[in-house]
Design a protein around this nucleic acid. Structure first.
Length: 585
DNA sequence: GCCGTTTTCGGCCCGACTGTTTTCAGTCG
């Protein structure tokens, strides 16, 4: 669905690069094309729906009449005449280099005009032959950095999945916090906003002005650091030994800590809006604080809350700072109170040794009760028979498992454990366990584990119609970096889920994150009941609940929209209500 | 090229670090 968006955004981005190449007189045009490119890239729907609707396209942020025409031209003809013209004056082969660290428009212009280099290959050969040495502006370090940049860009894209980035980030954050000069330190950047994939790890550190330089040096010498990319006394960039991830550390004073945190958390688009608001009020906003434009007087900067207050906005949680309407809503002080990890009362999708989990049920129960004291219930949901590879249980197995669960509950003196199942949705939308068994479970998660190349809408709709199905597990079926999500008509599925009293899962496994934040936002708007699950197969995976909560928060999700913030009594009511609904068939 | 509840013209976020060169341009985030 979004492939077309990526293509269109790519063309606009390349046009922006062309205008950057053309120099100062075109620089604002370049910015305009970049903004439009990002808008298309962030679009929640397929850009193709605007093919015959210039008016709506024009209304999008950063897309005016002229760019709207060009997008429509591309959608209809597959090219943009203006872009074809631009390519005649700009060395197209070098355009892509502008996305590499260290390669800007001025550099590729010099390469082309002085050395007639117009492709990446020619550049690599020129570097190997030493043709750049002695050319004015190309010192030995610059040439070295160009080689490094090229090398890095040809290696696998160094983007990190959030769960890995969090691990690396928290590890070095912890080391930084232990340095005596550090008063405070926090993760910032897209990691703090909870994006699925991040490019680097940002950290903001508070220290006194006198300590900054010494601290910067110490940070570069931490054992986690494998290489130094840049090191001033307020900014340090290093590469982590473990993951090769880039870490940008900013060291600021207490006066500027909130401003720096705000600035380095982003998003870029969010910041630009904030700065514009400051401007309109006669102030200037930067990473050091909020200042009066004329007198330079410092107005605020110690905390993020201060900054938002001065700007007349409600505090905006990091997960919402994506310039997706949060500023307008914050101006009216109408932001939703987002769900938090402490609201969660239990995990409703996990696997024991009975199928493909690593632990026995009692060990999990004891671990979770100790580690998550706020939890009131834990639903064991092992696989059904079709999942042979995951040792799916037969109907008889489940009956035996019921007995075991009762015994453990009895031993622990609680009813903490609930009887559940992750039942397979077969190709025709039916389930692989009989109704007489399904009705005995406390909770039934139904999931697709086959037919990933099909449009699975009908299968999922049929599962929602089943009276004993309470939740659709990992509804999109994607595995990040491995398998694309299968095709689903989300409008239809969400409307069906809401109408039938079927919950949709936010599966918090790091390689799933399914529903995605964008789909959560859509589900919230359609009043679908959500459940945040870890799908844990090992004790350590119960920690992923935090990740699921982050996804929910990015989807503007309130506590009320998440079923497992409720007591078990309320969850039983949710289940009973569906069973009593009049059936279509 | 976009945008506007002072504006349809004249703005457009802003500062740090690097490298190469003697005072700054280019690039990044």
């Amino acid at each position: 669905m979004t492939t077309q968006n990526v293509v269109v955004a790519g063309v606009l981005h390349r046009m922006a690069s062309c205008y950057k190449y053309l120099g100062a007189k075109e620089r604002f045009r370049a910015i305009a094309y970049d903004v439009a490119s990002r808008t298309v890239n962030n679009l929640q729907c397929d850009v193709a729906i605007y093919k015959d609707d210039k008016k709506s396209l024009d209304e999008l942020n950063g897309i005016g009449s002229s760019i709207a025409d060009k997008i429509i031209e591309f959608l209809k003809t597959g090219k943009i005449l203006k872009f074809e013209e631009l390519k005649k004056t700009v060395p197209e082969g070098l355009l892509d280099l502008m996305d590499i660290v260290g390669f800007g428009p001025a550099l590729i212009k010099v390469l082309y005009e002085k050395l007639r280099i117009r492709t990446r290959d020619q550049l690599v050969k020129a570097l190997e032959a030493g043709r750049l040495e002695g050319v004015r502006g190309f010192g030995s370090k610059k040439i070295e950095n160009m080689k490094k940049g090229l090398q890095l860009s040809s290696e696998a894209q160094s983007r990190l999945f959030i769960w890995d980035a969090l691990k690396g980030g928290n590890e070095i954050l912890d080391a930084i916090r232990h340095l005596p000069e550090v008063k405070k330190a926090e993760l910032a950047g897209s990691l703090r906003r909870g994006k699925e994939i991040v490019a680097d790890i940002d950290i903001v550190v508070m220290a006194t002005a006198e300590d900054r330089q010494r601290l910067a040096t110490k940070i570069t010498k931490l054992p986690q650091v494998a290489g130094i990319l840049a090191a001033g006394d307020t900014k340090v960039s290093v590469r982590l030994a473990a993951s090769q991830a880039q870490v940008d550390v900013r060291i600021v004073t207490a006066e500027a800590y909130g401003a720096a945190l705000l600035y380095f958390t982003g998003s870029r688009e969010h910041n630009i809006r904030l700065r514009t608001i400051a401007r309109e009020k006669g102030w200037k906003l930067n990473e050091y604080g909020l200042f009066d434009l004329k007198t330079e007087k410092y107005l605020a900067g110690k905390t993020e809350a201060d900054m938002y207050k001065w700007l007349g906005l409600q505090y905006i949680p990091p997960e919402l700072r994506e310039e997706r309407g949060e500023i307008e809503v914050a101006a009216k002080h109408r932001l939703p109170v987002l769900v938090t990890a402490s609201d969660i009362k239990g995990d409703m999708h996990l696997h024991s040794k009975w199928s493909d989990g690593q632990e026995d049920i009692e060990t999990m129960a004891q671990y979770v009760r100790k580690t998550f004291p706020g939890y009131e219930y834990l639903v064991i949901t092992d696989h059904s028979p079709s999942e042979r590879i995951a040792h799916g249980l037969t109907a008889d197995d489940f009956v035996r498992q019921f007995v075991e669960i009762d015994k453990i509950n009895h031993r622990l003196g609680t009813d903490f454990l609930k009887k559940g199942v992750e039942v397979d949705i077969l190709m025709d939308g039916s389930l692989d366990l009989p109704d007489r068994l399904l009705r005995q479970f406390d909770w039934v998660v139904a999931s697709v584990h086959s037919g990933f190349t099909h449009d699975n809408t009908q299968r999922l709709l049929k599962a929602c119609d089943h009276p004993f199905v309470n939740c659709i597990g990992h509804p999109g079926g994607r595995l990040l970096g491995t398998r694309e999500a299968y095709t689903v008509n989300w409008e239809q599925l969400m409307e069906k889920a809401a109408a039938t009293g079927t919950a949709l899962e936010i599966n918090a496994q790091p390689e799933r994150m399914d529903l995605s934040d964008e789909l959560v936002k859509m589900a919230v708007a359609k009043k679908v009941q959500l459940v945040i699950d870890t799908d844990a197969h090992a004790l350590s995976q119960f920690d992923c609940m935090q990740l699921g909560v982050t996804i929910a928060r990015r989807g503007w999700c309130k506590k009320e929209a998440v079923l497992n913030t409720c007591s078990w009594r309320e969850i039983s009511q949710f289940r009973n209500k569906k069973q009593k609904m009049p059936r279509n068939k």
